[in-house]
């Protein structure tokens, strides 16, 4: 049994909240850079060039890439041989978010109650997904999620008869409906299968997969490529102002499902597809 102090989790998550809001992962950065080369429309080129300048300023001057520094979504993969000591793990995670957002000059965008809507003032609570895995390590992924794109996400409970064509239509229709609202060029996270909530969680997790890493399932990898091509022929373009680069990637995760169902969840993410990954 390996012991890990929860204060280490707090300190790590604090750093990761700040890092994710100022620096994109290398795969996202590279994909945005190459997009500028493939864009054909003048306005699209201009927007992509502004996004390059924006990333540069964000990193050099420590100004968040986007003012919507998101609701903190945390994926925690905990090795089953780990024993957390020194306090309550969940509270340690929330404290990490609190310190990251308060000390890191990040925006406080969380309201305590969805209907009463009073800001909590420290961006807590975050949304935490736990997974128990073999081993004695802890993998932490911090993915601050902005709501311009989150609001344009959908869960479709399709019928088995809708099949792969139905799934494709659901995904493309979601991206088209999102249009300029989701801050294109977007990354499209998709979860197919499972149950209602499993599909949605897979869609969210798919956004944390590097955009240059296709699915390990061959037909799913082909589907990702095909859908990216289809979406980028629709002309929405950077900023929704017209152009060839509407999406940077389509990442699809799948899971077994019920004989009666075909859940398809589409989690839209803007070009500021932020996440930071560390292993303790």
């Amino acid at each position: 049994m390996r012991e890990i102090e929860v204060s280490t989790v707090t300190a790590t998550i604090k750093d990761m909240c700040i890092e994710a809001n100022h620096f994109l992962t290398p795969d996202m950065k590279a994909r945005l850079e190459s997009a500028a080369g493939t864009e054909t429309s003048p306005v699209g080129k201009k927007v992509l060039s502004q996004l390059q300048d924006n990333l540069k300023i964000a990193g050099e001057e420590m100004i968040p890439i986007c003012q919507d520094t998101g609701m903190a979504v945390i994926f925690l993969e905990v090795g089953q041989d780990v024993h957390f000591i020194g306090g309550d793990l969940e509270e340690a995670i929330q404290e990490g978010i609190r310190r990251g957002y308060v000390d890191g000059y990040l925006r406080k965008s969380v309201v305590k109650d969805p209907l009463i809507r009073e800001n909590t003032g420290d961006n807590t609570p975050g949304v935490i997904h736990y997974k128990i895995v073999p081993g004695d390590k802890v993998k932490i992924t911090v993915a601050p999620k902005g709501f311009g794109s989150e609001n344009m996400s959908r869960v479709w409970m399709l019928k088995p008869a809708d099949g792969i064509e139905g799934a494709k239509k659901a995904i493309v229709d979601t991206v088209l409906e999102a249009g300029p609202n989701a801050c294109p060029p977007v990354v499209v996270g998709v979860g197919i299968g499972g149950t209602f909530e499993k599909a949605a969680e897979m869609a969210k997790e798919a956004l944390t997969r590097p955009v240059d890493t296709p699915s390990t399932v061959p037909y799913v990898a082909d589907l990702e490529k095909e859908l990216l091509g289809t979406i980028n022929k629709r002309g929405i373009g950077p900023g929704g102002l017209g152009g060839a680069v509407t999406a940077l990637a389509v990442n699809i995760n799948t899971y077994a499902t019920h004989i009666a169902g075909l859940p398809v969840a589409v989690n839209m993410c803007c070009h500021v597809n932020r996440h930071s990954v560390r292993v303790l």
Binding site: D53, I63, C66
Partner: peptide, 13 residues
Amino acid sequence: FAAVGGAGALLSK
């Protein structure tokens, strides 16, 4: 008018 979404650092300048 539209400003570029997600370019908050640049626009702040």
